[in-house]
């Protein structure tokens, strides 16, 4: 009779082999970019894979000359604002849906969840009109439009918010989150009813219940949501590209492409430096919140 042990350890050996090969393949392009970001202009164009000492030189060039610093600042502002806003609004939404009894709460939940199927990318043309068209000159003009259903619902937009070339265009349309509301709802439903009852009997107001009981209990969910939302906003490309026309307000994902396009020959050393720098903020957030992120999902999904 074959003994199980040798077979298992050979299985283990092959597991290590496959995993090591996969990890190296997955990391290789970024390691390659990292090495090229440290090399001189001549070395960047050669096959050399030896790290140089030019990273700070490249960084200074791309940060100031190619405006990477500006793009990074814009992206950080927008991503932080959307992440914080989305988390708070989702927290409110989850709280209202789970701990309040009110007519229409099933409808509200459906209304929120249905938006998962409405990606901004496909609605980009009407959304662009809505966000960037000039606002009405006065409240009277707005009211004349708003009180005429034929104009509101049957004609293309006459007015918009006038936000093109403003951070508002990149922040406000993305503040509500179906994913977030859903995640908090699932998490809150798993909280024992007795706890909520105890809080009410002790005379806690809804606001106190939210800030002193729910928020401290929701570390993993908040962490998971923060990672998803930050990465989602940080990665956005199409929307900022069409709605932001002033270069000094552009986000880094689009800015990176401008660095490729600028000048006669592409400065690949700079571009790779830019790519690495662009990768750092989401990577940091992800590594810091990684444990919470995994736990936040292990609790809610696939049970």
């Amino acid at each position: 009779m074959p003994r199980p042990r040798p077979r298992r350890s050979s299985g283990r050996f092959w597991s290590h082999v496959v995993l090591i090969v996969a990890c190296v393949l997955v990391a290789f392009p970024v390691l390659f970019a990292l090495i090229k970001a440290t090399q001189t202009r001549a070395a960047v164009l050669s096959p050399s894979l030896i790290a140089g000492d030019q990273f700070l030189v490249n960084l200074r060039q791309v940060w100031a000359t190619a405006d990477l610093g500006l793009f990074m600042r814009n992206s950080l502002i927008v991503a932080t604002a959307v992440t914080v806003g989305k988390t708070i609004l989702s927290l409110f939404g989850g709280m209202a849906l789970v701990f309040f009894r009110f007519p229409g709460h099933r409808f509200v939940f459906g209304f929120v969840l249905l938006t998962l199927m409405m990606p901004t990318e496909v609605l980009i043309v009407p959304l662009f009109d809505l966000v960037s068209l000039r606002p009405p000159e006065s409240w009277a003009v707005f009211w004349a439009w708003f009180s005429d259903p034929g104009r509101v619902f049957l004609r293309p937009l006459d007015f918009g918010f006038g936000w093109s070339n403003s951070y508002l265009a990149l922040i406000v349309p993305f503040l509500a989150s179906a994913t977030g509301t859903f995640l908090f709802r699932q998490h809150f439903r798993a909280i024992p009813t007795s706890l909520a009852d105890a809080a009410r009997i002790d005379g806690a107001t809804p606001w106190q219940f939210l800030t002193r009981v729910l928020v401290p209990m929701s570390g993993n969910t908040i962490g998971a949501l923060a990672v998803i939302q930050f990465v989602y906003v940080w990665d956005q490309y199409l929307w900022p590209r069409v709605v932001i026309r002033r270069e000094e307000l552009q986000v880094v994902q689009v800015g990176l492409n401008m660095i490729i396009g600028a000048g006669d020959g592409v400065e690949w050393g700079w571009v790779m430096t830019g790519a690495i720098v662009t990768l750092i903020p989401p990577m940091l957030i992800f590594l810091v919140l990684q444990e919470r992120f995994t736990r936040g999902f292990a609790l809610t999904d696939a049970k």
């Binding site: 409110f92 509200v108 509500a176």
Partner: peptide, 21 residues
């Protein structure tokens, strides 16, 4: 789960999300 019975408070919590959506 419902604990609180306030009629308008849930709509205050939901209003920003519903408005944006």
């Amino acid at each position: 789960h419902a604990v609180f019975t306030n009629r308008w408070l849930p709509w205050v919590f939901l209003a920003p999300s519903l408005a944006v959506l």
